[in-house]
């Protein structure tokens, strides 16, 4: 066991994966010599050499497209996109090839590759550095989309992602990179993709969240607890494929549902989750399901971002309505 924050846990996991499996290669902008702008790959080039851990020229489309080629030819690439706001040039590759290779070759060719990127906001970052792309990726059939919320989960989920025979988009909440430390075992373990986790059991209301917001949602649940409202908080952990069972089971128990996410509300993951609840647990509901999500606006620059990103208090205000309906 060692104390790790999210970024050191990712570094440690990549190290483990590189050591275990010589097919694993790690690359992206500033990933090699510098060890990543967030320092996720520090020391790895020294340890595994420039053939396996390397800097690329500045071209996201090429980073992802090259990973496709490597995966087709027997490697297990782990590509880093420096900030999720710069992944858009690679969307052509992701949508047209990454997500479709298995289907269009009827299973003959497939892509065991991971695309890692920082995710979400609330850290007073520059323009284009605060968005939450779970919505976009979750909408594309053929991609698995994972968002860890703790160092422990990050390790288990990233190892699963690297060993998965399908492409995984691995979204790392940048707000959590250095937010807190946790005991993480040195040895190998995985956490299954597609499994949510009940973080705080409760009986009055189901709250689903993920990433950095999960921690605010937990704080909000504490505020409610003091008022006698016992919320069950679920860390979704995987955006796609959704863990339907865990969510529906919880809603059937509590009869009330809210989802809390950073991305803009319209057509966001919350809409999918509410639809899931309506379809699967409608007759159990005692209140209309609630989406506590981002405003349908461009995420403000740092001075205004606190209006966009919710703190526990604001979440609690919304959740109270569902509980007291």
């Amino acid at each position: 066991m060692a104390l790790m924050n999210l970024i050191t846990a990712i570094n440690h996991t990549l190290d483990l994966a590189l050591a275990q499996d010589e097919r694993v290669v790690v690359f992206g902008e500033d990933v090699g010599v510098e060890g990543g702008v967030f320092r996720a790959t520090v020391g790895l080039q020294k340890k595994y050499g420039e053939e396996r851990v390397f800097d690329t020229p500045l071209a996201e489309s090429a980073i992802v497209g090259t990973a496709v080629g490597m995966a087709l030819n027997g490697l297990r690439p782990v590509a880093e996109i420096q900030f999720s706001g710069f992944v858009y040039p690679a969307f052509n590759q992701i949508i047209s090839h990454v997500a479709r290779m298995r289907n269009r070759t009827r299973g003959q060719r497939y892509l065991p590759m991971v695309i890692r990127m920082p995710h979400g906001g609330g850290i007073k970052a520059l323009e284009h550095h605060s968005e939450s792309l779970d919505t976009f990726f979750g909408h594309i059939p053929g991609l698995k989309v994972v968002v860890p919320s703790t160092p422990y989960d990050a390790k288990g989920l990233l190892l699963s992602a690297i060993r998965d025979d399908d492409p995984v988009i691995f979204l790392e909440p940048s707000k959590l990179y250095r937010a807190f430390r946790q005991e993480v075992p040195e040895e190998d373990y995985t956490i299954p993709i597609g499994k949510a986790k009940v973080v705080k059991p409760g009986s009055d209301l189901t709250v689903v969240s993920w990433g950095a917001y999960l921690h605010e949602a937990l704080k909000a649940a504490e505020l409610l607890q003091a008022e006698g409202i016992d919320a069950e908080v679920i860390d979704l952990r995987t955006i796609s494929p959704l863990d339907r069972e865990t969510i529906l089971e919880s809603v059937k128990k509590t009869g009330r549902f809210a989802v809390v996410h950073e991305a803009a509300k319209s057509f966001g993951p919350g809409a999918e989750l509410v639809a899931l609840v309506n379809e699967g647990a409608f007759l159990y509901l005692e209140a209309p399901p609630l989406r506590l999500a981002g405003f349908d606006i461009t995420i403000p620059l740092p001075r205004g971002e606190h209006h966009y990103f919710m703190d526990a208090q604001r979440m609690a205000a919304g959740l109270r309505q569902v509980a007291n309906f």
């Binding site: 509300k265 319209s266 405003f295 349908d296 606006i297 461009t298 403000p300 620059l301 001075r303 205004g304 209006h307 966009y308």
Partner: peptide, 28 residues
């Protein structure tokens, strides 16, 4: 003068504020 006005965060998404954005603004 550098703190943004809340109104400005909502006002410029479109030429005119659509109903759902106005609602979010007013609720906030």
């Amino acid at each position: 003068e550098g703190e943004p006005r809340v109104e400005d965060l909502f006002k410029y998404t479109y030429k005119e504020m659509p109903a759902h954005v106005r609602e979010q603004y007013e609720e906030y």
